[in-house]
Amino acid sequence: MKILRYPFREKDVRALRAGDEVSISGVLFTGRDKFHKAFADGCGVECDFRDAALYHCGPVVVRTGGGEWKVLAAGPTTSVRENPYEPAFIAASGVRVIIGKGGMDSRTLEALARCGAVYVQATGGAAALYAKAVKRVAGVMRLEEFGAAEACWRFEVEDFRGIVAMDSHGRSLFDTVRIGAKKALDRLF
């Protein structure tokens, strides 16, 4: 198990290899479709992503009786929809860790290598476990405009686990698996 603690430094992130299991603690922002589009359109989402993590996630968040936010479910959403936006986001924001599911395309893989970042695969559907890793909701942006599932939440997480699926050295586990599966498929046809 590799350990990452906020602020996530470039040299620590570059030391990670595809296939490593990683435990992440520190600042994590959620951002999915509306967030990426807004960022690309230049109507900036004002927060400091430098050396933090961005999580493709639409959580279930409720207000408790005391008026505090409580995260009930926070699993990953499919990342491919953000392919058009992610390379520019990585370059402009200084984010070090992208977390999601299903992987991203070669443009993102190239941006990870150029900027010193990794893509971590969270387990799809494991929403209760990831909600438990959220120790504090430190803020939310664009809640009214985007809705709770699409808003940019700032979470402080402890021992959030995933698998490095795309590293900063041009290696993607998804590509390896797809190539192997295609060969196996051809034998069955």
């Binding site: 639409g58 479910a73 959403t77 799809g124 559907g125 929403a127 209760a128």
Partner: peptide, 12 residues
């Protein structure tokens, strides 16, 4: 965990 707390096991 989800079963114990009766919370959604997947957020979708």
């Amino acid at each position: 965990l989800a079963a114990k707390n009766t919370t959604p096991l997947c957020q979708d």
